[in-house]
């Protein structure tokens, strides 16, 4: 028999764990499917597990390491008896009441869990470029996690692709190790925040390849360089690097929700009236899976709190 819960939460980044904390304190005994280990950001703890210093989460004067912050949030949710399960939800069906969730075989006849209210906090993941050799050279110079792999490029030239805050953060972090960091960006100006831009421009180890895209990653058994294409002139060129870090943006982890919840054209979950309500009554969405604008740990945690309160009141109205 599938177990029935008042609240089930999918995801365990700042949004999922804050929703867990609040619903646990409201005596709703939430069950959290926290995901499974991976290095591509849909893992327990979410995207912060792949970062280092978090300097803008209020309450930590000197900053805190991403994984440490998530460890604290997890412990805090557990303190109030939220149940966290290291498993990935493979399918949901939000047509019946209670809602149905599967772990493991999505074709299994019987769901794994039933939820009166469902909170979706599946987050977002880093986009890859999709250029030749990218997949083959992951772990051999192509990295999705600068904080994990920067160490291996001591005194070597590396490149970062992207022009946003994450790209600048990675580039600045990589200057601790690399001899030179080339930021490859498709336009002639950055999208990153002012403070990150200033830091990047002031760093003598960072160079910029403006109006450029990566058309191919070069290397036989390890990355040896990049082939670039100029977006204005169309000219091709090559740069020699031993490491390549991709930071071109994010996409929501919403594949699970397709056909179940109304999504925006860009794949993010639609929420309504400034709340966390989705197109399905009783299903709430919070964190990066429904936010392509702010995308901060603190806004994510804030919307996790909103989802918990929305779910709690919704259950109350139904006398559940």
């Amino acid at each position: 028999m599938p177990e029935r819960r008042k609240v089930v939460i999918i995801g365990s980044g700042p949004a999922g764990l804050t929703a867990a904390l609040y619903t646990a304190r409201a005596q709703l005994a939430p069950l959290v499917f926290e995901g499974e280990p991976s290095s591509t950001s849909d893992q327990p703890g979410g995207q912060l597990m792949l970062t280092t210093d978090v300097e803008n989460y209020p309450g930590f004067v000197d900053g805190i390491m991403g994984p440490e912050l998530m460890g604290i949030m997890r412990a805090q949710a557990l303190r109030f008896d939220a149940e966290l399960r290291t498993a990935k939800v493979s399918r949901i069906d939000v047509t019946p009441r209670p809602f149905e969730l599967w772990v493991g075989d999505p074709a299994a006849e019987e769901p794994t869990a039933l939820a009166d209210a469902l909170i979706v906090a599946t987050g977002a993941r880093a986009l890859m470029l999709g250029v030749p050799n990218e997949d083959r050279l992951i772990g051999y110079g192509v990295s999705t996690c600068a904080t994990c792999d920067g160490f291996f490029f001591r005194e070597q030239p590396v490149a970062v692709s992207g022009g946003g805050d994450s790209a600048m953060e990675e580039a600045i972090f990589l200057t601790r190790f690399a001899s030179k960091v080339t930021v490859v960006h498709r336009r002639d100006e950055l999208r990153a925040s002012k403070i990150m831009q200033e830091r990047a421009f002031a760093n003598p180890k960072i160079e910029f390849a403006w109006n450029s895209t990566v058309s191919e990653i070069l290397g036989d058994t390890k990355v040896s360089g990049l082939r670039l294409q100029n977006t204005v002139s169309g000219d091709a060129s090559e740069i020699a690097v031993n490491g390549f870090f991709v930071a071109i943006g994010h996409e929501p982890n919403s594949a699970l929700l397709k056909g179940q919840l109304e999504l925006e054209a860009n794949g993010y979950v639609k929420t309504f009236d400034g709340t966390t309500r989705t197109s399905v009554d009783g299903v709430f969405a919070c964190g990066d899976v429904q936010d392509h604008y702010y995308r901060q740990a603190i806004t994510s945690a804030g919307s996790g709190c909103m989802a918990a309160i929305d779910a709690e009141r919704w259950l109350e109205e139904r006398g559940q």
Partner: peptide
């Protein structure tokens, strides 16, 4: 390594 989040996960 101590500073690697995914390492702690596994």
């Amino acid at each position: 390594a101590e500073w690697c989040g995914p390492c702690k996960m596994i």
